[in-house]
Every structure is written in C-alpha cells, then in structure tokens.
Amino acid sequence: MLEVRELQAGYGAATILFDVSFDVGNGEAVALLGRNGAGKSTTLKAIAGWLKPRRGDIRLDGRRIDGAPSYRIARAGLGFVPEGRRIFTGLTVAQNLEVGRREPHAGVPWTPQRLFSLFPALAELRDRRGGQISGGEQQMLAIARTLMGNPTLLLLDEPGEGLAPLVIAQLTEALRALKQAGVAILLAEQSLVLAAAIADRACVLESGQLRYAGPYGEFARDAQARAEWLGLD
C-alpha cells in the first residue's frame, strides 16, 4: 500500500530525516514511534505532501507520490490528520465534514450518518461551530472529516495528545472499528496508548533515523528497547 524508501527531508538549512524506509501493508496498522523531535511529524508531512522530500521515493499503491501537491495525494486515497487537528473553526461540524467529502473509488462511502455512529459524541454537535467544541470532539471531527474523503490509508499525527483518558478510550474504540473496516493506518505517537490497541507493527525513529522495525508485540515486550528509544518503562 505505502512504500517509503530512503526518505530525506528537512526545513531550511536543517535536515530532519535521514534515509528513512518502511512500509505499510493493506489494512495494516503501523505505529511510528519516537521521542519528541525524532522526526515523526516530519515523516508524515513529507508523505502527505506538506513538505517536499529532499530525496528518496514514496509510493502509494505502486504510484509515486513524492513531490506531488497535497491535494493530489489526498485524491489518490491518502488521508492526513495533522497534529493540532486543524478544524475549520468558523464552520459547523456538519460543514467541516462536507468540506472533506469525496466520491469513493470503490466500496461503501463514509457518510455523516456512518461517522456519527463511529463517533457518537459528534452526532449532537452537528450544528455547533468547530471552534466551540472540546479538544477531544475536535480530534474526532478531524478524523471523521478526513474519512469523508474515503481514504484507503489514514495518517494520524498524535491524535491522543492532550486528551482525557475517557476520550482516549472512545478514540481507541473508533480506531479499532476503522481498522476492522479495512482502513490502513499509520499512527505517529510518543506514548504507546493508542498504538497498543491497534498496531500490528512498530517503527521507531530516533534523531531522524529508523532504529527499529518489527512486530508490535515484540517491541512492546522488549522493555530495554522501550527505555532506550522512547524513555518509557
């Protein structure tokens, strides 16, 4: 589904990523882990077309997407939910969803009704402005809005950041359901809260380099690896 090969990227004079390579298979959930500043967000931005890669190639379903404008990458079936949610605060919840709507290439399309059953909290907020709902509700809206474009691969950047445990639990449920619906997921996270629930594999970044790639269960059991790369015990 997604193949990233020797990706190099950065801002201005600073290079952030050095030769990062990994894959995400069909319907697979991959956790992209690493400390603050390790290059997780930069990796996602480079894939989604928000940042032009310096080198390397990125393929989605075999077609190269590196260097393409972000709207083309989105149309090719890659949905990106960036850090900080980026809700249109002046538009209502329903309007936010409408902005994301795209006809599907195949399969049953996501509709507001289906998304409201995935995120029940949103159903009652339909006509509320995006700026007037809570952080957790915004995060769900951001994911729902991207799903309206019927992506086959979903990139999530720190979706659990700053959310209450109860909200995280709801989010976990929703992500599980998404995975069951066949959507591939690339999840960038600093902790292991959401990754633990859905990840099939783990990729660990440190200082812009890929240090570990393997089955998530193995990584989760390896206390030494966790301590070394994430500072978690």
Partner: peptide, 12 residues
C-alpha cells in the same frame, strides 16, 4: 481559514 488543511482534504 486554512488553505493547507483544505488541500489535504483533496481540494485544489
């Protein structure tokens, strides 16, 4: 409101 995000949703 947010050009970059709109593009990320597939709008040119």
């Amino acid at each position: 409101e947010d050009r970059e995000m709109t593009a990320a949703l597939g709008v040119n």
